[in-house]
Design a protein around this nucleic acid. Structure first.
Length: 480
RNA sequence: CGGGCUGUGGCGCAGCCUGGCUAGCGCGCUUGCUUGGGGUGCAAGAGGUCCCGGGUUCAAAUCCCGGCAGCCCGACCA
């Protein structure tokens, strides 16, 4: 009894993650459908908040939401050579419908570049039709061989932005604009610091000219690709014949972009802030920001406490946990596991003293405060907690980022790192954007996460494999 | 998709090797009392296709074959 249902991070980080997701009531494996999960109210509410934060920013930058079919004619996937090569191993295909074998199978979308390309071709004729700025909130299916809740599930929820532009420059601006929005939501809303950068050629999206990502560091030091933004060039424009006539009267293919974030963000959120007691949710995303636990012994106390509890809770927008049959301790544990940022305790002692006890989820600090200051103190605490969580995550990122100047050095740092044992680092090294160089990392299961947009290190240097001069250090890490 | 581990009331497990009575235990759940500032205590109760299918046997949770699902490791990826 009273033993924590959550594995310690230090004992097994992967088991800890699973425990936190389960105990925090975010989701559970669907079991009857391989690799899929049921997202529960506490998890879905976080997703809804993320959606709101993202969607507002998409709209503010001129994008409109649309919805495209879940099923895509199989032939569409094959129109872009790299794209089909990248995605075909993980497609789910519908071959029978209405009891009959289909003439042409449909694939369940793994992403929608192809079907959207088809419609772009229909809708775009003139430079006046551009830019076309579309976003879709949807589910997709990728038949992944290994799944983990939120981080990689067979079906997942995401948004995919798809845009078409008349010039490459404009498309490139779009790609970076959306990358910035992702970084802003990650840092300001999720309190999760990220590194913005460009993917290497071998890590880019199948069919893109260039891909960009935001990479976050989890508490075990592993990297998580938290969002991607792709410069598709004219690849899909050519594959789907999306042409427009320019002001000068010339016919040209459009320049496209696509960008997405998924429910994976919730996994990142968990692994950024949560602790051995369970979930920790930054206030800006918390479905329940504060809970008030009333405490009483006798019936006469109960009446007075509950009356005051409901009145004060209303003032601060807190939920009152007035469930009978659970003592306060049990309630504290309940809300702690669910990551509620602030828990308030109100009992007879407080009523007598005119105080109420305020407890922060992240630090565990507990403090009696005057009831008259409740609203301002709760708001201030939520605000501080949001900032502190970011600062702590940022500090961890810094502390676990190291510089290396040889392949041997990188290997010695990363070789024994696993998701369970942790100890991961971001290793900054000069390395050429070349598959032949990255193969050396693959030997110990590390990858180039990205080439940072902003160089915070020592600028150009010699590639540790080829000796050629490269522009800046890249992020090498093990990742999810 | 290859390797390993696992699947038994809601949850966590024991039993399986060496087949045999009514399938146990802890937690949770229900009811009542009690307790209440970090998982109260007592009592009575409810709850089971032993993952699924087939086989061996007088008899299968237990042995054999096949499948499904979960977790971990690898290869593949948001």
């Amino acid at each position: 009894m009273a033993q924590s249902p959550i594995t310690l991070r230090s004992a097994d980080f992967a088991a800890w993650y699973q425990d936190v997701v389960l105990q925090g009531d975010l989701a559970e494996p669907a079991e009857i459908v391989k690799g899929c999960m049921v997202i529960k109210p506490n998890g879905y509410a976080i997703w809804e908040r993320l959606q709101r934060e993202l969607d507002d920013r998409f709209k503010a930058t001129g994008h409109k939401n649309m919805y495209f079919p879940l099923l895509i004619p199989e032939s569409f996937l094959k129109k872009e050579a790299e794209h089909v090569e990248g995605f075909s191993p993980e497609l789910a295909v519908v071959t029978i419908a209405g009891g009959k074998e289909l003439e042409e199978p449909y694939v369940i979308r793994p992403t929608s570049e192809t079907i959207i390309g088809h419609f772009f071709a229909k809708w775009i004729q003139s430079w006046r039709d551009l830019p076309m700025l579309v976003n879709q909130w949807a589910n997709v299916i990728r038949w992944e061989l290994r799944t983990r809740m939120f981080l990689r599930t067979t079906e997942f929820l995401w948004q995919e932005g798809h845009t078409a532009h008349s010039t490459h420059e404009e498309a490139q601006e779009e790609v970076l604009r959306m990358l910035d929005i992702y970084a802003e939501v990650a840092e300001d809303v999720m309190a999760m610091p990220v590194i913005k950068g460009k993917k290497t050629h071998s890590e880019k999206f199948a069919g893109a000219l260039h891909s960009y990502s935001i990479e976050a560091m989890m508490q075990n030091g592993l990297a998580l690709q938290a969002g991607t933004s792709h410069d598709l060039g004219q690849n899909f424009g050519k594959a789907f014949d999306v042409k427009f006539q320019s002001k000068e009267g010339q016919l040209d293919y459009v320049w496209q972009t696509s960008w997405g974030v998924s429910t994976r963000l919730i996994g990142g959120l968990v692994m950024s802030h949560s602790d051995d007691k369970g979930l920790v949710i930054p206030p800006k995303l918390a479905p329940v920001k504060s809970v008030l636990v009333p405490i009483y012994r006798k019936d006469d106390e109960k009446g007075a406490v509950l009356e005051a509890a409901h009145r004060m809770a209303k003032d601060v927008g807190a939920e009152v946990d007035d469930r009978e049959g659970h003592n306060p301790g049990a309630k504290f544990f309940h809300w702690e596991r669910r990551g509620v940022p602030v828990v308030l305790e109100l009992g007879p002692r407080d009523l007598a003293a005119g105080t109420i006890v305020l407890k922060r989820r992240d630090t565990g600090a507990k403090e009696p405060i005057p009831q008259s200051e409740l609203k301002t103190r709760v708001d201030a605490t939520l605000d501080t907690m949001q900032k502190d969580l970011y600062a702590a995550a940022k500090q961890r990122l810094k502390a676990n980022t190291v510089v290396a100047n040889s392949m041997e050095e990188i290997e010695s740092i990363l070789r024994d790192v696993t998701a369970e044992k942790g100890g991961g680092k971001f290793v900054m090294a000069h390395l050429k954007d070349d598959a032949a160089c990255e193969v050396r990392l693959k030997a110990f299961k590390a990858t180039v996460r990205n080439i940072p947009q902003v160089d915070e290190y020592d600028g150009p240097g010699k590639c540790i494999v080829t000796g050629e001069t490269v522009d800046r250090r890249v992020v090498v890490a093990k990742s999810y």
